[in-house]
Write a protein that binds this DNA or RNA. Structure first.
Lengths: 210, 210
DNA sequence: CTACTGTATATATATACAGTAG
DNA sequence: CTACTGTATATATATACAGTAG
């Protein structure tokens, strides 16, 4: 094989993946020995050293089960980040200023790659089809970053004060008015006084099941 | 607090989260003792038993570091799934029939929640702005499920045989022709003979950095 | 050198146990 | 009962070491 790994080393990697997926903690050297039918713990240790040299795993000395799988670039694999699902959007629920202060309805898991260092993200479940042209359908989940302001054309969750309602729309400030534009060719824009519209967050990602 | 946990138990949970995020393997009871400034390993064991009773963690007996964090529903937390990034779309690269057979340019990590049991997913990097109305911009990554057919209106990656090109468009079969509709109001549709269009996959998710 | 066998061993680690305090 | 203290201990575990084979 072209990856420079022996059959045994690839077998150990496979076992590591599988064991961790199953138990959520790494195997001991004896677990690996038995799982891969290896004659001696020395052989496991020997091959783990080779895998570490090749940048495929990371180990801590004299610590039990201290084996971490690395990705193909020799970097730590990303874990998931938990984002609270706060409620439906386009319903009469204001988004709290401090998302941590309310009990979320559910927890959405994203990879760090998707989050890219953004903090305090929160999730909402979309109601209605006003964003269908953006492939955001009824029941989909949108991930938002808390923001009090937005640039023209950004997709925001906006709190319409006198309606007591949060809605997901494209944001266009126009003088003293704000135009909230649906992304659905069958729907017209909502025009509101700027003082009646509070931007709550900016769209960062969507999760869909097409 | 209303979650029925003592200060110490919440402290242990926080430490578990942090330790696992940092090391990618769970702490030993002694690690927890020191990390949370607890007087004795017995106290750690005692509180871990309480956390296990409350369905917040899972332990394996007589196994070192055998602590798994569960989510708030007492379920196992999902790990990430690796999806190969095969190349750019709207460039002259056919998507191989068996994604596993080519070396991916990169690996995209998704949560199992996003994958929902779909198999053999692959990722492509979008070139151009033909899907901008769907909030899919130049440089974004799209996740596709291998498919040879599609329903009208679905977003597909289509291989246009005589152009030697893969493109991401909405799919509308029209008799012996296929209309490939960009989602960009400034662009017109592409009309091709049905025999000249091969559906390669169906859009499942997008990853964006707004 | 690489890739093992087979055994030994120090220690890392979970856990038991006898109390104590409210 | 709950929530600890403080100590002891069996064993789970990583690792060292002396060889062997190509």
């Amino acid at each position: 094989m072209s990856d420079g790994l022996s059959e045994k080393q690839r077998d150990i990697l496979r076992f590591l993946e599988q064991f961790i997926a199953e138990h959520d903690y790494p195997p001991s050297i004896r677990d690996i020995q038995q799982g891969c039918s290896i004659s001696s713990t020395s052989v496991v240790d020997y091959n783990l050293k080779r895998l570490e040299e090749k940048g495929l795993i990371r180990r801590d000395r004299e610590v039990s089960r201290a084996i971490e799988l690395l990705n193909r670039q020799g970097e730590r694999r990303r874990r998931t980040v938990q984002v609270p699902l706060l409620g439906p959007i386009a319903a009469g629920i204001p988004i709290p200023t401090h998302p941590d202060s309310v009990a979320p309805l559910d927890i959405i898991e994203l990879t760090e790659e998707q989050v890219r260092g953004k903090a305090n993200l929160f999730a909402l479940r979309v109601q209605g089809t006003s964003m269908i042209d953006a492939l955001i359908n009824d029941g989909d989940i949108v991930i938002l970053e808390p923001r009090q302001t937005a640039d023209p054309g950004e997709v925001v969750a906006a709190w319409i004060v006198d309606r007591g309602e949060t809605t997901l729309k494209k944001y266009y400030p126009e003088g003293r008015k704000v135009r909230l534009q649906p992304m659905n060719s069958t729907m017209g824009p909502i025009m509101e006084d700027a003082s009646n519209v509070q931007v709550q967050g900016r769209l960062v990602a969507t999760i869909r099941s097409f």
